[in-house]
Design a binder for these strands. Structure first.
Lengths: 211, 211
DNA sequence: GTTTGTTGGATAGTGCCGGTATTCAATGCC
DNA sequence: GGCATTGAATACCGGCACTATCCAACAAAC
């Protein structure tokens, strides 16, 4: 198949595909002549993956590049790819040298320790959580372990389901896709359902009661 | 207090504060003379809120403007403010006229109906969920009700805790802030804990097993 | 009362990001 | 033969969230 067909089937313009190739998100097709190149199913799958990571996961192009580089490296184990993806999801903030931030960060580290979770020291999700603590406290809402418990319970049970879903598949490509889907896309599933559930509960609790 | 002190206490530059005033996110201080204005505690709180919505919630300035406009309108009830916030969170996509999209959207609507959830037809979270379905199916991962059950359970239980947290407070300003914290900031808490839980489970399941 | 600094107001500019558009010559297809 | 497609290179664009600069009017310190 040539690039125009790839464009039709992926739903991306030829320009955009060329752009992704230039940015190193995908190898170029195998040139048949100087001005023709042949693309195959794997290119199509790659584009679908890129599209999912961009449009659903809202990942920057540079992050996707890192993810696919890890994907293609067979020496990278599943858990390391997990790490790469987590890192790509960000946040990409520089921890400010602020006492409130350091305290929040310490709280996060303590929480992880108490839960007995095996999580890298530099996992960006730690910073993300610390950031929420800082913001909540600045707004005058202290964060306690009790507040967090329902979230921890929910997160744990969902994560276990997700890993089981991934573990079932066999060929590396499939497993890797399943893992990325779990981390990036199902995260949005959780977010969307969370918002819908909130609206439902809010409707029952607050609607028709203009407080 | 004048603007420079407001800047110090909020952690935002004077320029940025002026920018937010210009954009209508905050009223200007009460002018004492032509070249002096006085700001008070409410300005500071507003800036902290804006900062939380921008830095933690990653909301665009234009969306924050809509939220604070609803906040300030006492005729807007809590549930309507909830709706405004949900709308601000997006996604702001135009539903493509694609059969796959329509099917996914129909699946979402059916799911919401089956769960008996009271959710507006135009809630953006519906579109977000539909978007994930489309992406998952394009990648070759069908989505079933069974797959979703753990997410629904988790989302529901978390949402109930959140509404209870909001319902306790009394003065409107406090209630409103609590609601925004619940929807926008605690959403990030859930996301962060979800990622941390995933990494933990992944470490136990995949690490030191370079498949 | 002069100097130094701050303020509001206005306008312009910046940096990043994710594409788009354009141009070109070589080539394939009918 | 003539039109469309391709790869490659380069330039350009629009949105966004600031950031910088300038100005005249003041205020405060000395």
């Amino acid at each position: 198949m040539q690039i125009s067909e790839l464009s039709d089937r992926s739903g991306l313009t030829v320009q955009t595909i060329k752009f992704y190739i230039r940015e190193g998100l995908m190898p170029k097709g195998s040139s048949t002549t100087v001005t023709r190149a042949e693309y195959d199913q794997r290119h199509l799958e790659r584009l679908r993956l890129i599209r999912a990571l961009r449009e659903v996961g809202d990942l920057p192009v540079a992050s996707i590049k890192k993810i696919v580089a890890s994907m293609e490296d067979d020496s990278v184990g599943l858990h390391e790819l997990f790490g790469t993806t987590q890192y790509a999801l960000g946040p990409h903030i520089v921890p400010p040298n602020d006492p409130h931030w350091r305290a929040a960060r310490e709280d996060v580290d303590m929480l992880v320790r108490e839960l007995g979770w095996e999580v890298g020291d530099r996992a960006p999700a730690r910073a993300l959580l610390a950031q929420t603590f800082v913001a909540l406290r600045r707004l005058g809402f202290p964060v306690t372990l009790t507040d967090l418990r329902p979230y921890v319970t929910a997160a744990t049970s969902v994560a276990e389901h997700e890993i089981n879903r991934v573990a079932l598949d066999n060929p590396r490509t499939l497993t890797v896709h399943a893992m990325l889907a779990s981390t990036v896309i199902y995260e949005q599933v959780l977010t969307a359902l969370h918002r819908l559930a909130q609206e439902d509960v809010s409707a029952r609790r607050f609607a028709a009661d203009p407080s």
